[in-house]
Computed example of a mutant assay.
Amino acid sequence: MDTQIIPAAPGTPDRPYFGIDVPLMRLLGLQPMHMEEGLCRTRLPASDRIVNSRGDVHGGTLMAVLDFTLSGAARSHAPLDVGVITIDMSTHFLAGARGELTFEARLIRRGAKIAFCDGEAKDASGNVVCVARAAFKLVPMSSGGN
């Protein structure tokens, strides 16, 4: 898997996440890896600040990062111009997640106002630990978004 950080949209210190700033993703330590039309990849380094009482990455952390990565795939056609609002998201936890994780999201279908995406989180061994599917409302960037 590609581990080089390659933002599709210009990344700057104030807009590091494929052309936008998401303070929660900064807090979690998420790293943007790659975005292209219909695809988004991110990486979450291991940290003891994002785990639950068992030492697994907290489910809320997994859901938040999947939401962001899925939204990246939804807006990948115009990352500097289009924002998104999550309409619906379902998540399935398949195994405890430990250590560094990579997230990959794919666009299933995009219409004029709605995009549908699916994605997964994998551990360092390549095991899928969590999957998600979401629908997003597409909005002009000036209206906000994920």
Rank of each mutant, 00 (worst) to 15 (best):
A64I: 13
K113F: 04
C130F: 02
A132Q: 02
V51F: 12
L66E: 12
A134Y: 02
L101S: 07
V131T: 14
G72D: 07
G99L: 06
K122V: 11
G96L: 10
T86P: 02
D88F: 03
A121F: 09
V82F: 10
D88N: 07
A95M: 07
G111M: 10
H58T: 12
T91H: 04
A121K: 01
H58N: 13
L70Y: 05
T86C: 06
A135C: 03
E100M: 15
K122Q: 05
S53A: 13
G96K: 14
G83P: 04
G83S: 08
T91Q: 03
R75P: 05
A112M: 13
L70N: 01
R110K: 15
G111A: 11
G72W: 06
G83H: 02
G119Q: 00
T86G: 05
A134N: 00
A121S: 04
V57N: 02
R75C: 08
G126V: 10
A64V: 14
S76C: 11
P79G: 01
P79K: 00
I50A: 05
S90E: 01
L62A: 13
V84P: 04
A73I: 13
V82C: 09
I114N: 01
T86F: 05
F68P: 01
V84H: 06
V84E: 07
T91I: 15
A105Q: 02
E120G: 02
F116K: 01
A124N: 01
R133D: 04
H92Y: 02
R110Q: 15
H77D: 11
G126M: 09
D81V: 06
S90R: 05
A105G: 12
I87G: 07
D123W: 04
A115T: 15
R75G: 06
A97F: 06
L62C: 11
S90Y: 00
V128M: 04
A121Q: 07
M89F: 00
F103N: 01
V84C: 15
I50W: 03
S90L: 04
R133T: 00
R109V: 14
M63K: 02
A95C: 03
F116H: 11
D81F: 13
R133E: 04
T69N: 10
A124W: 08
H77N: 15
S76N: 14
R109F: 12
A124F: 05
V82A: 12
G99A: 05
A95D: 09
A121C: 11
D123M: 06
R98V: 09
K122H: 08
G96F: 13
A64F: 07
L70E: 00
M63R: 02
S76F: 13
S125L: 09
A78N: 14
V57R: 06
F93L: 07
L94N: 03
H92F: 04
E120N: 03
S76K: 11
A132W: 00
L101E: 03
A124T: 06
V57Q: 08
S76T: 11
R109G: 08
C117I: 15
G55P: 08
R75T: 14
A135V: 00
A74T: 07
G111C: 10
D118G: 02
V131F: 01
T86W: 02
H77K: 11
E120R: 03
T86E: 04
L94A: 00
F116T: 12
G59F: 12
G60N: 08
V82E: 12
T69W: 06
F93W: 09
V65R: 03
I87T: 15
E104D: 07
